[in-house]
Amino acid sequence: MRFLKNEKVLNVFLYLFLGIIIAMPVLLVVGLFFKSESVLHANSLSDLLFSTEWKPFQGKFGFYSYIYSSVLVTMLALLISVPICLFAAIYLTQYAKSVYLKVIQPVIDILAGIPSIIFGVWGILVIVPLISHYVAPFFGIETAGYSILAGAVVLSVMIIPFILNILLEIFKSISKELPEASIALGATKWQTIKYVILRKAFPGIVSSVVFGMSRAFGETIAVLMVVGNVAQIPNNIFEPGYPLPALIANNYGEMLSIPNYDSALMFASLILLVIVLLFNLAARMLISRYETKI
């Protein structure tokens, strides 16, 4: 390890690597903006964002139905996974013996490590038939199962480990004295959780939800496989949708043959990137404010 003695040469590399990382977010935004400039010139921003007209051959790119699908799938997924995560986190940190947490932690970690393509295959194997044979007929609707709901269910399972891990950290970080004081004053266990712990953890809970949201918003392959990929404004959650990431992934092959198409898809990536960055920024702000309070 002689080369470590000469710090000057090594330091150049160290700071170079650091520089690359600091430049990365800027590079991502600038690079994608640069590529999407030609579509921004040809169409107005409001047309791009709020029009449903998607005719690449005529140079018309309206992303509204894609954005709508993305938002719908994400919200639905959160609606399923947030209550599960919240109850699981409260139970594991407040009620259960610490052995439980030791058993559950590997399960969460394995779930977090499973690739999205496996979730997609599972969605096709289990969720899609389940919806088309049992859930939809229950509401009197006929569907092939490839639907917004299927995408949301698969997504909700995928984001559970992320949200749950953050929630567990937050509940663990609340000092022991607070609930003890509350119980000493005669509050019941449930009252303590409801009025003391949940109130204290509220910003953290919000930020965990926002993290889950940004994770869900950018998820590609698993959703693409089960959501049906029909560009429309769905009337109900049993109809197929077409989220933004799926649009990008599905059309990468042909995008070079049609003018402005590649630019439009890069603009779609830019929308994704900006939204996810904003979500993350908001969540970080909330969490950091909360950390200084304790």
């Binding site: 991502l28 950018g218 990431p245 990137l273 996810v276």
Partner: peptide, 20 residues
Amino acid sequence: FLLDLLWGVPSIVYGAFGFS
């Protein structure tokens, strides 16, 4: 903070960026 932001960027965006 920057690293946490980058962690949240979806992989498809990296794919599109790499492609361009």
